[in-house]
Design a binder for these strands. Structure first.
Length: 426
RNA sequence: GUGGUUGUAGCUCAGUUGGUUAGAGCACCUGGUUGUGGUCCAGGGGGUCGUGGGUUCGAGUCCCAUCUUCCACCCCA
């Protein structure tokens, strides 16, 4: 949970609407006020939508505008991402941290959106950030992490795209459309989805002039840095090109092949100022990891000249993708390696001693909690894919033995309980 | 936020032009097996048909409202 002012204004206009606001606790209307001049003139006499009146009640929205009352009734919100709260944390604890400061964080975030495929109201982000260093080595390292993660997970066709906000800013300046910069960003980012025609249409509707649109189209179709070099003449844009060039060169030396420059990558979040990164594996389900460099985020909270860069893995989308492609190993849900069957009170307490020893030896084990019928206990072990079941009934207990059953082959044999761990380890 | 869509057993779904006691598969439970699962056989429990109104002799089926689900847009992990 964050103060609402910590979050607003960092994610763009649309982003602000998607922040999950929390109604003040207690008598939340106590301090609510609304200016006279924004009060909608609704009275019983001039109310034009009488059909909307239900009995003696009518919707409050006809009386007040929500954006006018909102500041009075909500002062907290659920975190929209992990980056902005992280920046707030860094500023708050700046005296206790050593810079460059690195951290990872895995937590849920919330979006006040209508859920749909690949989009959740609550989902987990896994963030990795380095704050307090301008070095591009951080970008290189983060991209290397992304490459390693998706390779390890078996997502074979992932693609890492990078671009640079300074290149985009340079483009906007070169084309004299600086005032439409955010329109450029949101439109360009849809290139893969709605194509050239769609992007043109959107830019046109936002009032971008014809020459600007032509320039943007040429830019979006560029496939390499050298293609855009001549389109961008100002120093800011040139710096962006140089930075991306260096990152790509370093990655090549490291043998990372999954990353490439993508002119149409733009990213909507408004706090990015440098490199921007996005990972896709299946275009339909959107990005599964994204991030970038932000120069001013800590500045907003009162700590100047600290640059940070980070990426965020979308855990739920990655999970969906892996589930869809059957990438989870069959033994992923095997947690118990050995189950002691329960034959009754005396046998169970005997097994409890063995259970402690087995666990101390690093083997995940459990004792069935009830002295249920064997059929039920074995069904349980089977359903949970527990590979071994240990049986200690009256006979075994008397002889200090354990009967082990291999659930896969069905074989079973009896060993001395003192040999149990050796048997399991071997 | 805008447009559409869905709702029947724990899950996936049938249910004809409105007509007796709303079905199936899977899952679950019991027994066949007194200390043995994954197969098989026999039997069993479980649904105010999302909710609230209405039309009708009669509503899972038609009408209205409301909630919910999913999808697209916007935007994003």
């Amino acid at each position: 949970m964050e103060s609402i002012e910590t979050l607003t204004g960092k994610y763009g206009d649309e982003g602000d609407k998607l922040i999950f606001k929390i109604l003040n606790s207690g008598d939340f209307l106590k301090n609510a006020r609304i200016r006279k001049d924004v009060l909608k003139d609704v009275t019983a006499n001039n109310f034009s939508k009488m059909d909307l009146i239900v009995g003696d009640e009518y919707p409050l929205q006809f009386l007040v505008r929500d954006n006018e009352v909102l500041p009075y009734i909500t002062e907290k919100a659920l975190r929209y991402d992990l980056t902005v709260p992280f920046a707030r944390f860094v500023v708050q604890h700046q005296n206790d941290l050593t810079f460059p400061f690195k951290r990872y964080q895995i937590q849920p975030v919330w979006r006040a959106d209508r859920p749909q495929k690949g989009r959740y109201r609550e989902f987990y982000q896994c963030d990795v950030d380095v704050i307090g260093s301008n070095s591009l080595l951080n970008e290189v390292e983060l991209i290397q992490i992304i490459d390693e993660v998706f390779t390890a997970l078996g997502v074979s066709d992932f693609k890492i795209s990078i671009n640079h906000r300074k290149i985009l800013a340079g483009l906007a300046e070169s084309l004299s459309i600086g005032s439409n910069f955010s329109d450029l960003v949101t439109a360009l980012d849809k290139w893969d989805k709605i194509g050239e025609e769609g992007v043109c249409k959107e830019l046109d509707s936002k009032g971008v002039h014809r020459d600007g649109i032509v320039g943007i189209m040429k830019f979006a179709k560029a496939s390499s840095l050298s293609d855009i070099d001549e389109m961008i003449q100002n120093s800011e844009g040139k710096q962006g090109i140089q930075e991306v060039d260096k990152i790509l060169n370093d990655l090549e030396k490291l043998g990372v092949k999954s990353c490439s420059f993508n002119a149409s990558l733009a990213r909507g979040l408004s706090y990015y100022t440098g490199t921007i990164i996005e990972v896709t594996a299946n275009e339909a389900s959107g990005s599964i990891c994204a991030g970038g460099r932000y120069d001013d985020l800590t500045g907003i909270f009162g700590m100047k000249d600290i640059s940070g860069v980070g990426v965020s893995f979308g855990a739920d989308r990655i999970y969906d993708l892996m589930e869809e492609r059957n990438l989870f190993p069959a033994d992923a849900n095997v947690s118990t390696e050995l189950m002691f069957a329960n034959f009754g009170e005396a046998e169970a307490s005997f097994c409890f001693g063995l259970l402690k020893e087995v666990r101390a030896a690093g083997i995940n084990a459990e004792l069935y909690p009830d002295a249920a019928k064997m059929k039920k206990q074995f069904s349980y072990a089977d359903a949970k894919h527990i590979p071994l079941v240990a049986m200690v009934g009256a006979d075994e207990m008397a002889k200090n033995e354990v009967t082990l059953k291999n659930m896969d082959s069905g074989e079973q044999r009896t060993v001395k309980s003192s040999e149990l761990i050796k048997e399991l380890k071997g």
